[in-house]
């Protein structure tokens, strides 16, 4: 049994939200530089240059990378040997979210009621939290600040198990191509294949936390990742819809077992700001 005081979690989450809102992930920065190097057309190359400049200015001026500072999203993988002391876990995360919003400051972007009042919570709460129990005594938190534009263009479908790999590549690519410039390309894609109606989108979201430059360990799925990227980049939407061959920087797939009658496929789109971090306590 390991005791973790939730004040430790508060500090880690608070600091992470602040950091990822202002400081670009070095691997992503590198990926944008590479995209600029690859880009053959002038206008998208210039815009990639502005994105690189933005990474520098955001750190220098301590100003958020994007005015849509996002929804706080947490995947909490909790070792079953942990006993939390102090304030309740979820309350701790919400407090860190609210305090980061106030202190940074970040934009209050959450409404409490979705249709009629759409009244702003004014502190970015609630954060979205997904819990998973895992063996051991470690706590792993995946933290993201997810913007609305790319989230709005995300999609899922219950495909027929007869669907071929080609059909899946087409489904993913066509959905992303149809989104055009709205999700703020260049994009990172998370693809969830299998599971059920709620699991596939969760897998897709979790795939956004995988290594940008990595590939699925099963070479057949690694091939699908590459084909999805190639097909979308061939279609020519490009950086911010200004053409060229850099609509997508990376596509990562996570799979899960599924029902004999089902083949759920979910695609979570992530804009080029891609604020995310892993915390291990």
């Amino acid at each position: 049994m390991r005791f973790i005081d939730t004040s430790l979690i508060y500090t880690a989450v608070y600091e992470t939200i602040c950091k990822i809102s202002f400081v670009c992930d070095p691997q992503l920065h590198e990926a944008i530089l590479e995209a600029q190097h690859r880009e053959t057309e002038d206008l998208p190359r210039e815009i990639l240059g502005m994105i690189i400049q933005n990474h520098n200015y955001a750190s220098e001026d301590i100003i958020p990378l994007c005015q849509d500072t996002g929804t706080t999203l947490i995947f909490a993988e909790i070792g079953t040997d942990i006993h939390f002391s102090g304030k309740p876990f979820s309350e701790t995360i919400q407090a860190a979210t609210a305090d980061a919003q106030h202190d940074c400051p970040l934009r209050a972007s959450i409404v409490l009621e979705p249709i009629f009042e759409r009244n702003n919570s004014k502190n970015n709460c609630p954060a979205v939290i997904h819990y998973e129990l895992v063996p051991g005594d470690k706590l792993r938190l995946l933290v993201a600040q997810k913007g609305g534009g790319a989230e709005n263009m995300s999609f899922m479908k219950m495909l027929s198990p007869s669907a071929s790999a080609d059909t899946i590549v087409d489904f993913v690519a066509e959905g992303v191509i149809a989104a055009g410039s709205r999700p703020c390309p260049p994009l990172i894609l998370g693809v969830g294949i299998g599971g059920n109606f709620e699991e596939a989108p969760l897998l897709a979201k979790k795939a956004l936390f995988l290594d940008l430059n990595g590939h699925h360990q099963d070479p057949r799925y690694a091939e699908l990742e590459k084909r999805i990227v190639a097909k979308i980049n061939h279609a020519g939407c490009g950086v911010q819809g200004f053409g060229g061959n850099n609509t997508v920087l990376s596509a990562r797939i996570i799979t899960a077992p599924c029902h004999i009658a089902s083949l759920p496929v979910a695609v979570n789109l992530q804009c080029h700001v891609h604020r995310h971090e892993e915390i291990i306590i």
Partner: peptide, 25 residues
Amino acid sequence: IGGISAVLSRCIVSCETFLWEDLGA
């Protein structure tokens, strides 16, 4: 261009809430 707020913010000379402050952002 979306997602380059630090660049665009350097081009703002003045900014004030003008109307309907209750709407926040």
